[in-house]
Amino acid sequence: MKTIAIIDYGMSNLNSVVKAIEYVAPNDKVIISSDQKVIDSADKIIFPGQGAAKNCMQSILERNIKNLIIKNSADRPFLGICMGMQVLMENSDENNGTECLGLIEGDVKKFSSSKKNNIKIPHMGWNKIINRTEHPIWNKINQEAFFYFVHSFYVNPKDKSIIIGETKHGEIFCSVVAKDNIIAIQGHPEKSSDTGLQFLKNFIGMK
């Protein structure tokens, strides 16, 4: 039995993630925590998040878990979801500029929307992730697969070689990155039906 810790920093409704992980890993232990000892002893870590970048970072700093996230993402499988992907970057354009965790070089940008291009914000609904690199996280997932998205900002990593999935909403943006132990996805695998469950299963299977 492995332990999967879901980092709780008061910024999101974690239940959807918990329920999906329990569904794909019925024999593992799923815990929600921001406690250092608990997270340190987990085999795998999931870092969800929603809301605004500034609130998210404030919450991380208030709970004093910045170093905990940095340390643990270095030596075991770590999955950032949605805002949990964005705050891994160096900074975000959201809230007039927000300094983030800096685990991945690059920034977070807002979609440009206009009546002309008919691009709505938030980018809400099902869209394709085109996986462009072979990676165990894509096991049994089609090269073009639908995931559910809800967001207004997207990550723009400096090192393009870490981009393993892309999506188009007006512009083509980076929707999945993989760097060392870190996997991060802008969409919501916990809400993406069978494809999303397979993605989570693949993450659980990573060593």
Binding site: I119, K120, H123, M124, G125, W126, N127, H169
Partner: peptide, 8 residues
Amino acid sequence: MTVTKRII
């Protein structure tokens, strides 16, 4: 390719 229309 863009976000799909939804049926709810």
